[in-house]
Structure formats: structure tokens, C-alpha cells
Design a protein around this nucleic acid. Structure first.
Length: 548
RNA sequence: GCGCUCGUAGCUCAGUGGAUAGAGCAGCGGACUUCUAAUCCGCAGGUCGAAGGUUCGAAUCCUUCCGAGCGUACCA
């Protein structure tokens, strides 16, 4: 990365100055390299001279002068300007920028080795299998899928997992509701449980089972089997819907596995051994207050059944201790916020370093129809399924939309406006840039022009240089997304890149019959652009069409 | 009450210690005989919720207040 290169040059210059006694000895802090907003402030800037004030006992301007005068000869820096109150502004050589095109020959550009081959598991969506996934889950799906791809690009061994809560109260309710709906088809009236699932999809589900198995499960004693069949159909539907927006998991993990393998008992036993368990009012409690939480939490209810929390501790124990992931990232909706601290405390209690667990919360989506809020509840049957929204807006517009805001920002999703806004979605602006690139490359191919890196020095228009500068920013964007777990930078970057391409397209004609050398150099630039743009779109989870 | 997140242009949002705060949409005005006008160029639009503080420097950090969403279960 160019920033690293410049930081090293600056660091060397400070060492130089120290050796010449122009600076006294001190430990050099990390040199921060920024991209200034204004072009007159240079291509890059650093505030290191300001930061060193306390260490050198000189003022920032003096520091800057010393640093600038000690920078060794190099192929990158064109000029250095020192500006009050002590900024060092750096302009980079055009000849160096242009040469960078050569480095962008495939999609490995932008890769990092941050992960050092560590294994990381990313768990996301994990919605209850008692109903179809709703529109709100689309956000978690988009964030998770993109983050997984970026981490892979950064040298992690990634695994993507969907956790299926196939046991517990909600599943029981689901089973009872399904039983009632199924019987209804045979004109047998069985009341739907009070908190049952009222959505119409339960009727469809019952019909499906009737078509396949006829009256085989009318007997109440076979309710467990009926529930299992219902769940498996539901899960398949969830898989299909996620896959149709381009989200595919490496693993689907069933909660029931934890019960079968007695992981819960194991974990509760371990916590007991480490004195984090107490028995109060016939229930078993986890003493998270011992680790600084505000309150303790029930693991086993007074009726003997485990809570969701207990299962989740076992599940995470399984991730870390049994499957041995180095790192685990969970992507949760903000309504699970209260769960974060106690799960981390539980890991700590089990002697698992809580820093290995990252929980990324995304703020919830408020669904609206005009000015009225549309409530969402699986149980009441108020469901806007992911499926019905994306078939109207399209997968690409949806993925781009969900990713383009920071996870900390709550989102409004207006169902009426969604279709209208679809055509305004910036994703098309970006895709159009890609289509334009391919139009030129195709035409050049037919006319027998070849990409050539031999005459890159012919590239000197401002629009070309700006475009290349944006291209070589790509690795730092990827790094930012991976370290901050903030995938929303990708759509923004793609828009900026597309914009610079469109400007270039308007100002610089690529195929110029009178100038074959320039044409072939520009084809090299164009190809670099194609690679970065399509890689960005792939990470976002959006297609890169060659024609529009 | 306490905790988490947010408050930036008419709208939707970037920017989270750096210099004169940016983009899209909406608005107004221009540009197609050219490799795709789903494009480009220009104009207009802001006391960064409020007040204090920290420092060379604050939309960004701290404190208080105001407003919004979420959480605070022997639900998941």
C-alpha cells in the first residue's frame, strides 16, 4: 500500500535526523498518512511533525523542516510542502502513479495477509426456522456475506454459518400451530395456541405436508415428527431465499446437536466448577455479576428446561473449544444488544479470551408504507418476507442498499418508495460504468488492439491520473473494512470509482485510430479499472453486467 | 431510571482528532453526428441537535441537556 510506503520513508527520515543529532532519541510513533480533501494540500499528508512536538522540544514547523530535509531519494515522492501549523504535504510522482497500473493485473490486487491464515467463523442471520426470513434479516445477510468475502481476501480462513434454533418453546409453538392447521385441512377443529404462529404461510405449510404425506400425522402422538417435517421444509425455504439473493453458507448448525452431544451439561458443569453457578428459586443461575455484569442470568429454568442463553453458551463453547476457531464474528440485530455482555462474560468464565469474539450489531430496519410504520411479527403473521421485496426491487439493488449505510445507523425502508427508488439506486450507476468498460474492451478486441504496458507514460491527463489514484486506494479500503468490520465503505468506494471512470470516459477517448500506442496504454488502464470495479461489486454481492 | 446506537444540505446518508464539512436524490441551467446520455458540466442549498470543556486543531474526544430507535424476561 502506498500509505505504508510513505510512512516508511518518513520514519527513515526521522531516524536519519536522529543519527545526525538533529532530533534527540525517542521511540517513533506510528506515522499516520492521510488523503487531504483539497488537492492543493497534496496527494498525501502527515501530521507527524505536530505529534512530535512534545518529543523533540522543537515546534512543529521546525520538525517538519527537519523531516523533509532528511527524506532519502526515492521513486515515489515528487515534492514536499510544509504548511502551518506543521503539516507535511506530499505530492507523488506522476510517473510512479502511472506505473501502478501494472500491478493491477488480477483480482489479487487489494489482498492482505492480516488474517495470517487464522480461522474465523462468521455467523449471521440465524433467524428462527419457525417462519420465512423477513426483510429485516436482509441487512444482516448483506453485511455478513460481504464481510466474509472481505476477510477471505485479507488472508483469513473463513467459514459462514447459520445457527438453527430447532428446539425450545418457539419450536413447540410452531409444532402445535402446524398440527392445528394440518387438522383443519381434514375439518378437525383444534385450537391454535394462544401465542401461536398466525401467518398464512403455516396454512401453506400444512397443505404441502398433506399433499406429500396425506393424513399420516393426524395423530397427536406423531406431533414431534410433524414438527420436524415442518421445520425441514421451512429451513429449505430459508436456504432457497438466501441463496437467491446470493448468500450461501458453508455450514448450517442445528441447536439440537448441542443437546444430543450434551454440550449444555458439559458447559454448566464447567461453570459450576469455576464457581459461576448458583441455585436460586429452583433455577440454575450464571453469576455474571461476578465479572461485572449488572445482573445474573438463568441457565436452567425451574421447570428443568434450559434457556436460550444456556444453549448459546454451549454453542459458543463449541465454536471456540471444540471446533477451534481462532476468531468468531457474530452479526446480530440491535434487539439482541442485551445479550452481548453476558455472552462475553460467559466466555471469560470458561477461560476463553473474550477478544476472540466480535459481535457486530446492526441497527434495525423500520418498515414503512408512506408515513405509517408496518409492524413485523412472525407470530401475529405480519411478515414482509425478504422474498417478496427482492422480487420487486431486484437482488442487486437490495444488496447495495442494505450495505451502503453504516451498521450503526438505523434504516427506514419504505415499501411504497422501494420500487420507485429502485431505479435511482446508485448500484446501476456503478454497473453502468462496468458495462461501458466492456463495450470499449469488446470494440478494441475486434479492432485488434492489445492491452500494452509499454507506453504508460503517455497517460497524463488529469482525469486519468485521478482515476488511477482511486484505483490504488482500493487496498486501503479493503483493509479498513476488514479491521473495522465496516462493509459500508465498499459501496461508497464503488460509487467514487465509477464516477471517476465516467468523467474519464467523457473526457478521454480510449480508441484512437490515429494513436495506437496511446490506445493500448489506455486499454491497460481500462482493464485495471475493470478488475477493481468487478471485484468491488463481487464483494458487495452484486453482479457486474457486461451490457446494460 | 440505567445501558447501547443515532441526531450533519429539503430528503437519504458518507466523513469519527487535521486544513475551506462531502456525495446521491429532489430543484434550477447547460452538453448527444463520437467507445452506451442509466452519462457529463455548472448553479443553488449547512450556526454538523444545544451548551460547556479538553488542545496547536473538534462534526469527530469528555460532561450536561434535548430529541429518536432499541434493550433492560425463568422469550428467542
Amino acid at each position: 500500500m502506498i500509505e505504508d510506503k510513505l510512512a516508511i520513508l518518513i520514519k527513515k527520515s526521522i531516524v536519519n535526523a536522529q543519527n545526525k543529532n538533529e532530533f534527540n532519541d525517542f521511540v517513533i510513533p506510528e506515522v499516520q498518512i492521510d488523503r487531504p480533501h483539497l488537492t492543493e494540500h497534496g496527494d498525501f499528508a502527515t501530521n507527524i511533525a505536530l505529534q512530535l512536538k512534545s518529543k523533540t522540544e522543537k515546534n512543529a514547523m521546525e520538525n517538519a523542516e527537519i523531516i523533509a530535509s532528511n527524506i532519502l531519494d526515492n521513486e515515489v515522492i515528487e515534492s514536499i510542502n510544509i504548511v502551518l501549523p506543521g503539516f507535511i504535504n506530499i505530492d507523488v510522482k506522476q510517473s510512479w502513479i502511472v506505473k501502478q497500473i501494472k500491478l493491477i493485473k488480477n483480482k489479487e490486487f487489494g489482498n492482505h495477509d492480516l488474517g495470517m491464515d487464522q480461522s474465523v467463523q462468521i455467523e449471521y442471520v440465524s433467524s428462527n426456522p419457525t417462519g420465512p426470513i423477513h426483510i429485516g434479516n436482509g441487512r444482516g445477510a448483506s453485511i455478513g456475506a460481504t464481510l466474509a468475502k472481505v476477510l477471505k481476501k485479507c488472508g483469513y480462513q473463513t467459514e459462514e454459518e447459520f445457527y438453527i434454533n430447532d428446539t425450545g418453546n418457539q419450536v413447540k409453538l410452531f409444532g402445535k400451530t402446524l398440527f392445528a392447521r394440518y387438522n383443519e385441512l381434514y375439518h378437525i377443529k383444534i385450537p391454535i395456541p394462544e401465542d401461536g404462529y398466525l401467518g398464512e404461510y403455516m396454512i401453506d405449510l400444512a397443505k404441502k405436508i398433506k399433499n406429500e404425506h396425506q393424513d399420516l400425522y393426524l395423530d397427536e402422538e406423531k406431533n414431534a415428527e410433524l414438527t420436524e417435517i415442518g421445520l425441514s421444509i421451512m429451513i429449505r425455504q430459508i436456504q432457497d431465499e438466501l441463496s437467491s439473493i446470493g448468500v450461501k453458507y458453508t455450514n448450517w448448525f442445528y441447536e439440537s446437536m448441542l443437546h444430543e452431544k450434551k454440550t449444555l451439561e458439559l458447559v454448566v458443569g464447567m461453570l459450576d466448577e469455576k464457581k459461576f453457578i448458583s441455585h436460586k428459586e429452583n433455577a440454575v443461575w450464571f453469576l455474571s455479576t461476578k465479572l461485572g455484569d449488572d445482573k445474573d442470568n438463568v441457565l436452567i429454568r425451574s421447570d428443568g428446561t434450559p434457556t436460550y442463553f444456556a444453549a448459546d453458551i454451549a454453542y459458543h463453547f463449541n465454536k471456540f473449544a471444540e471446533r477451534k476457531f481462532d476468531r468468531v464474528i457474530n452479526i446480530w440485530g440491535a434487539d439482541h444488544q442485551g445479550h452481548v455482555s453476558r455472552l462475553k462474560k460467559a466466555m471469560k468464565a470458561l477461560s476463553i479470551d473474550e477478544d476472540r469474539l466480535d459481535i457486530l450489531l446492526y441497527q434495525l430496519i423500520t418498515l414503512k408504507r408512506g408515513n405509517t410504520i408496518v409492524p413485523l411479527s412472525k407470530r401475529s403473521g405480519d411478515i414482509i418476507s425478504l422474498n417478496e421485496v427482492f422480487t420487486e426491487t431486484g437482488k442487486d439493488a437490495m444488496r447495495f442498499f442494505f450495505l451502503s449505510q453504516s451498521a450503526n445507523q438505523s434504516m427506514d425502508f419504505d415499501l411504497e418508495l422501494a420500487k420507485k427508488q429502485t431505479k435511482d439506486n446508485p448500484v446501476y450507476y456503478v454497473q453502468y460504468a462496468n458495462a461501458r468498460i466492456h463495450a470499449i474492451l469488446d470494440k478494441a478486441g475486434h479492432a485488434d488492439y492489445r492491452i500494452s504496458y509499454n507506453n504508460l507514460d503517455l497517460i497524463k491527463e488529469n482525469e486519468e491520473i485521478d482515476l488511477i489514484k482511486k484505483l490504488i486506494e482500493y487496498p486501503s479500503i479493503i483493509k479498513k473494512v476488514a479491521t473495522e468490520l465496516s462493509p459500508h465503505h465498499l459501496p461508497h468506494y464503488s460509487i467514487e470509482l465509477a464516477q471517476l471512470f465516467h468523467v474519464f470516459y467523457t473526457k478521454c477517448r480510449v480508441i484512437d485510430e490515429s494513436n495506437k500506442k496511446l490506445t493500448e496504454a489506455r486499454l491497460a488502464l481500462l482493464d485495471a479499472c475493470r478488475i477493481i470495479l468487478s471485484d468491488t461489486l463481487e464483494l458487495i454481492g452484486v453482479t457486474a453486467p457486461e451490457q446494460m
